[in-house]
Protein backbone atom coordinates (compact mmCIF):
# COMPACT_ATOMS: atom_id res chain seq x y z
CA UNK A 1 0.00 0.00 0.00
CA UNK A 2 1.38 3.37 -1.00
CA UNK A 3 1.26 6.45 1.20
CA UNK A 4 -0.80 8.34 -1.36
CA UNK A 5 -3.12 6.77 -3.90
CA UNK A 6 -4.93 9.00 -6.36
CA UNK A 7 -7.54 7.00 -8.26
CA UNK A 8 -9.27 8.27 -11.40
CA UNK A 9 -9.74 11.77 -10.05
CA UNK A 10 -11.88 14.14 -12.07
CA UNK A 11 -12.75 17.72 -11.25
CA UNK A 12 -14.81 20.54 -12.70
CA UNK A 13 -16.12 23.79 -11.24
CA UNK A 14 -19.25 23.52 -13.33
CA UNK A 15 -20.30 20.62 -15.48
CA UNK A 16 -19.17 22.24 -18.70
CA UNK A 17 -15.37 22.09 -18.66
CA UNK A 18 -13.44 19.36 -16.90
CA UNK A 19 -10.25 20.65 -15.32
CA UNK A 20 -8.98 17.21 -14.33
CA UNK A 21 -9.74 14.19 -16.48
CA UNK A 22 -9.03 10.85 -14.90
CA UNK A 23 -5.76 11.37 -13.04
CA UNK A 24 -4.31 8.34 -11.19
CA UNK A 25 -0.96 7.87 -9.52
CA UNK A 26 0.70 6.51 -6.38
CA UNK A 27 3.37 8.11 -4.25
CA UNK A 28 5.48 6.89 -1.37
CA UNK A 29 7.53 8.10 1.58
CA UNK A 30 10.86 9.73 0.85
CA UNK A 31 9.81 10.74 -2.62
CA UNK A 32 9.78 14.09 -4.36
CA UNK A 33 7.31 14.25 -7.21
CA UNK A 34 7.14 17.16 -9.63
CA UNK A 35 3.95 17.90 -11.49
CA UNK A 36 4.82 19.47 -14.82
CA UNK A 37 2.67 20.99 -17.52
CA UNK A 38 1.69 24.26 -19.22
CA UNK A 39 -0.07 27.08 -17.41
CA UNK A 40 -3.74 26.60 -16.62
CA UNK A 41 -3.62 22.88 -17.11
CA UNK A 42 -4.97 21.77 -13.74
CA UNK A 43 -1.76 21.33 -11.73
CA UNK A 44 -2.83 23.50 -8.82
CA UNK A 45 -6.33 22.02 -8.94
CA UNK A 46 -4.85 18.55 -8.52
CA UNK A 47 -2.89 19.75 -5.47
CA UNK A 48 -6.01 21.30 -3.98
CA UNK A 49 -7.93 18.06 -4.49
CA UNK A 50 -5.28 16.16 -2.54
CA UNK A 51 -5.60 18.71 0.31
CA UNK A 52 -9.40 18.45 0.13
CA UNK A 53 -9.67 22.17 -0.55
CA UNK A 54 -11.48 21.10 -3.72
CA UNK A 55 -13.62 18.00 -3.67
CA UNK A 56 -13.14 15.84 -6.80
CA UNK A 57 -16.28 15.32 -8.89
CA UNK A 58 -15.28 11.68 -9.31
CA UNK A 59 -12.55 9.32 -8.13
CA UNK A 60 -10.93 8.74 -4.76
CA UNK A 61 -7.83 9.84 -2.91
CA UNK A 62 -6.36 7.62 -0.18
CA UNK A 63 -3.71 8.47 2.37
CA UNK A 64 -2.30 5.45 4.21
CA UNK A 65 -5.24 3.50 2.87
CA UNK A 66 -7.84 5.91 4.28
CA UNK A 67 -10.17 7.85 2.00
CA UNK A 68 -9.47 11.52 2.70
CA UNK A 69 -13.19 12.30 2.62
CA UNK A 70 -13.67 10.09 5.68
CA UNK A 71 -11.13 12.12 7.67
CA UNK A 72 -12.07 15.21 9.65
CA UNK A 73 -10.36 18.37 8.43
CA UNK A 74 -8.18 18.33 11.54
CA UNK A 75 -7.13 14.70 11.01
CA UNK A 76 -6.37 15.40 7.36
CA UNK A 77 -4.30 18.42 8.43
CA UNK A 78 -2.17 16.14 10.58
CA UNK A 79 -1.33 14.14 7.44
CA UNK A 80 -1.18 16.68 4.63
CA UNK A 81 0.39 20.15 4.67
CA UNK A 82 0.00 22.67 1.88
CA UNK A 83 2.04 25.68 0.80
CA UNK A 84 0.14 27.60 -1.88
CA UNK A 85 1.72 29.87 -4.42
CA UNK A 86 0.13 32.96 -2.99
CA UNK A 87 0.22 33.65 0.72
CA UNK A 88 -0.15 36.85 2.63
CA UNK A 89 2.32 38.46 4.98
CA UNK A 90 1.02 39.77 8.23
CA UNK A 91 2.65 41.57 11.11
CA UNK A 92 3.54 38.49 13.16
CA UNK A 93 6.96 37.09 13.99
CA UNK A 94 8.67 34.24 12.13
CA UNK A 95 8.33 32.13 15.28
CA UNK A 96 4.58 32.78 15.56
CA UNK A 97 4.18 32.20 11.85
CA UNK A 98 5.77 28.76 12.08
CA UNK A 99 3.81 28.00 15.24
CA UNK A 100 0.59 28.41 13.21
CA UNK A 101 1.46 25.01 11.71
CA UNK A 102 0.71 23.39 15.08
CA UNK A 103 -2.94 24.36 14.76
CA UNK A 104 -4.26 20.84 13.97
CA UNK A 105 -2.50 19.50 17.08
CA UNK A 106 -3.62 22.25 19.46
CA UNK A 107 -6.75 21.65 21.49
CA UNK A 108 -7.07 24.84 23.51
CA UNK A 109 -3.72 26.60 23.81
CA UNK A 110 -0.18 26.25 22.53
CA UNK A 111 1.89 23.95 24.75
CA UNK A 112 5.58 23.80 25.54
CA UNK A 113 5.83 20.84 23.17
CA UNK A 114 4.41 22.89 20.28
CA UNK A 115 6.93 25.66 20.96
CA UNK A 116 9.79 23.14 21.07
CA UNK A 117 8.78 21.52 17.78
CA UNK A 118 8.49 24.91 16.13
CA UNK A 119 11.89 25.95 17.44
CA UNK A 120 13.62 22.77 16.27
CA UNK A 121 12.29 23.44 12.77
CA UNK A 122 13.33 27.08 12.91
CA UNK A 123 16.84 25.92 13.81
CA UNK A 124 17.00 23.24 11.14
CA UNK A 125 15.99 25.77 8.48
CA UNK A 126 18.61 28.26 9.66
CA UNK A 127 16.01 30.83 10.66
CA UNK A 128 17.16 31.19 14.28
CA UNK A 129 18.44 34.72 13.87
CA UNK A 130 15.22 35.83 12.21
CA UNK A 131 12.87 34.10 14.62
CA UNK A 132 11.65 37.29 16.30
CA UNK A 133 11.55 39.39 13.13
CA UNK A 134 8.19 40.21 11.64
CA UNK A 135 7.47 38.29 8.44
CA UNK A 136 6.62 41.48 6.58
CA UNK A 137 10.22 42.58 7.07
CA UNK A 138 12.08 39.54 5.68
CA UNK A 139 13.09 38.76 2.08
CA UNK A 140 11.09 36.67 -0.40
CA UNK A 141 13.45 33.69 -0.10
CA UNK A 142 13.28 33.79 3.69
CA UNK A 143 9.52 34.08 3.59
CA UNK A 144 9.31 30.99 1.39
CA UNK A 145 11.39 29.16 4.00
CA UNK A 146 8.96 30.27 6.70
CA UNK A 147 6.05 28.94 4.63
CA UNK A 148 7.70 25.57 4.23
CA UNK A 149 8.72 25.60 7.89
CA UNK A 150 5.12 26.16 8.89
CA UNK A 151 4.04 23.21 6.77
CA UNK A 152 6.65 20.89 8.29
CA UNK A 153 5.61 21.99 11.79
CA UNK A 154 2.28 20.36 11.00
CA UNK A 155 4.24 17.07 11.11
CA UNK A 156 2.55 15.83 7.95
CA UNK A 157 3.33 12.72 5.96
CA UNK A 158 2.62 14.48 2.72
CA UNK A 159 3.93 17.92 1.82
CA UNK A 160 2.18 19.73 -1.02
CA UNK A 161 3.97 22.69 -2.58
CA UNK A 162 2.61 24.92 -5.32
CA UNK A 163 5.47 26.44 -7.32
CA UNK A 164 7.94 26.60 -4.42
CA UNK A 165 10.59 28.23 -6.60
CA UNK A 166 8.32 30.86 -8.07
CA UNK A 167 9.48 34.48 -7.87
CA UNK A 168 12.90 33.49 -6.55
CA UNK A 169 16.24 34.26 -8.16
CA UNK A 170 18.44 31.38 -9.30
CA UNK A 171 20.43 31.23 -6.05
CA UNK A 172 17.32 31.25 -3.88
CA UNK A 173 15.65 28.70 -6.17
CA UNK A 174 18.43 26.24 -5.48
CA UNK A 175 18.64 27.12 -1.78
CA UNK A 176 14.91 26.51 -1.44
CA UNK A 177 14.97 23.28 -3.42
CA UNK A 178 17.94 21.97 -1.48
CA UNK A 179 16.15 22.77 1.74
CA UNK A 180 13.04 20.91 0.55
CA UNK A 181 15.24 17.98 -0.43
CA UNK A 182 16.85 18.04 3.01
CA UNK A 183 13.61 18.10 5.01
CA UNK A 184 11.99 15.44 2.85
CA UNK A 185 14.88 13.04 3.49
CA UNK A 186 15.15 14.01 7.15
CA UNK A 187 11.48 13.50 7.95
CA UNK A 188 10.87 10.76 5.37
CA UNK A 189 8.08 12.83 3.79
CA UNK A 190 6.46 12.48 0.46
CA UNK A 191 6.46 15.77 -1.43
CA UNK A 192 4.33 16.69 -4.38
CA UNK A 193 5.05 20.00 -6.03
CA UNK A 194 4.16 21.81 -9.20
CA UNK A 195 7.09 23.16 -11.16
CA UNK A 196 7.57 25.37 -14.18
CA UNK A 197 11.28 24.86 -14.71
CA UNK A 198 11.81 21.30 -15.99
CA UNK A 199 15.55 21.44 -15.38
CA UNK A 200 15.10 22.54 -11.79
CA UNK A 201 12.55 19.76 -11.39
CA UNK A 202 14.83 17.05 -12.79
CA UNK A 203 17.63 18.23 -10.54
CA UNK A 204 15.67 17.69 -7.34
CA UNK A 205 12.82 15.26 -8.02
CA UNK A 206 12.54 11.49 -8.03
CA UNK A 207 9.43 11.25 -10.16
CA UNK A 208 7.60 13.35 -12.71
CA UNK A 209 3.93 13.67 -13.54
CA UNK A 210 3.12 15.39 -16.83
CA UNK A 211 -0.33 16.93 -17.20
CA UNK A 212 -1.84 18.60 -20.22
CA UNK A 213 -5.38 20.01 -20.29
CA UNK A 214 -6.25 18.01 -17.19
CA UNK A 215 -5.07 14.73 -18.68
CA UNK A 216 -2.20 12.74 -17.31
CA UNK A 217 0.34 12.27 -20.12
CA UNK A 218 3.11 10.42 -18.29
CA UNK A 219 4.24 9.43 -14.81
CA UNK A 220 7.57 7.90 -13.90
CA UNK A 221 11.24 8.44 -13.09
CA UNK A 222 13.82 10.26 -15.21
CA UNK A 223 12.97 8.06 -18.21
CA UNK A 224 9.85 10.17 -18.83
CA UNK A 225 11.99 13.26 -19.40
CA UNK A 226 12.24 12.68 -23.14
CA UNK A 227 11.71 14.90 -26.19
CA UNK A 228 8.50 13.17 -27.33
CA UNK A 229 6.67 13.57 -24.05
CA UNK A 230 7.85 17.14 -23.56
CA UNK A 231 6.78 18.06 -27.08
CA UNK A 232 3.37 16.48 -26.61
CA UNK A 233 2.87 18.36 -23.33
CA UNK A 234 4.34 21.77 -24.12
CA UNK A 235 4.20 21.72 -27.91
CA UNK A 236 7.83 22.70 -28.21
CA UNK A 237 10.73 20.76 -29.73
CA UNK A 238 13.55 20.05 -27.33
CA UNK A 239 16.76 18.09 -27.02
CA UNK A 240 17.37 16.17 -23.84
CA UNK A 241 21.09 16.15 -23.16
CA UNK A 242 22.98 14.12 -20.62
CA UNK A 243 24.75 16.45 -18.24
CA UNK A 244 26.79 14.45 -15.70
CA UNK A 245 24.06 11.84 -15.55
CA UNK A 246 21.33 14.50 -15.26
CA UNK A 247 18.87 15.02 -18.09
CA UNK A 248 19.11 18.59 -19.33
CA UNK A 249 16.23 19.91 -21.41
CA UNK A 250 17.25 22.44 -24.07
CA UNK A 251 14.74 23.93 -26.52
CA UNK A 252 15.73 23.55 -30.19
CA UNK A 253 16.72 26.76 -31.89
CA UNK A 254 14.41 26.58 -34.90
CA UNK A 255 10.95 26.38 -33.47
CA UNK A 256 8.11 26.48 -35.97
CA UNK A 257 5.85 27.70 -33.15
CA UNK A 258 7.74 30.94 -32.72
CA UNK A 259 6.41 32.41 -36.01
CA UNK A 260 5.48 35.95 -35.31
CA UNK A 261 4.92 35.31 -31.63
CA UNK A 262 6.48 37.69 -29.21
CA UNK A 263 7.36 35.94 -25.97
CA UNK A 264 5.72 37.47 -22.93
CA UNK A 265 7.70 40.08 -21.09
CA UNK A 266 9.24 41.74 -24.15
CA UNK A 267 7.82 45.12 -24.88
CA UNK A 268 6.90 48.02 -22.70
CA UNK A 269 5.45 47.97 -19.28
CA UNK A 270 4.65 51.43 -18.12
CA UNK A 271 3.77 52.89 -14.81
Amino acid sequence: MSLLEVKSVRFSYDDEREILKDVSFDADHNNIISILGPNGTGKTTLLKCICNIHRPTAGEIYIDGTDILSLSSRELAKRVAYVPQKTYTSRITVFDSILIGRRPHIEWATTQKDVEIAWSIIESLGLSDLSLKYVDEISGGEFQKVQIGRAITQEPKLLILDEPSNNLDIANQHITMRMINHVVREHGLCTIMTMHDINLATYYSDKFLFIKDGEMIAYGGKEVINPEIIQSVYGIEVDVLDYNGQPLVVPKKDQPQYDGLVPAGIGGYSD
Partner: peptide
Protein backbone atom coordinates in the same frame (compact mmCIF):
# COMPACT_ATOMS: atom_id res chain seq x y z
CA UNK B 1 -5.43 30.72 16.34
CA UNK B 2 -7.79 30.22 13.42
CA UNK B 3 -7.73 33.96 12.76
CA UNK B 4 -3.93 33.76 12.66
CA UNK B 5 -4.19 30.95 10.11
CA UNK B 6 -6.70 32.96 8.08
CA UNK B 7 -4.21 35.84 7.91
CA UNK B 8 -1.87 33.58 5.89
CA UNK B 9 -4.59 32.86 3.34
CA UNK B 10 -7.80 30.90 2.94
CA UNK B 11 -6.13 27.87 1.36
CA UNK B 12 -3.53 27.58 4.09
CA UNK B 13 -6.20 27.93 6.75
CA UNK B 14 -8.28 25.15 5.14
CA UNK B 15 -5.23 22.91 4.89
CA UNK B 16 -4.66 23.52 8.61
CA UNK B 17 -8.12 22.16 9.33
CA UNK B 18 -9.97 25.47 9.66
CA UNK B 19 -13.49 25.51 8.25
Amino acid sequence: LDYNALDVGDDVASSLGVN
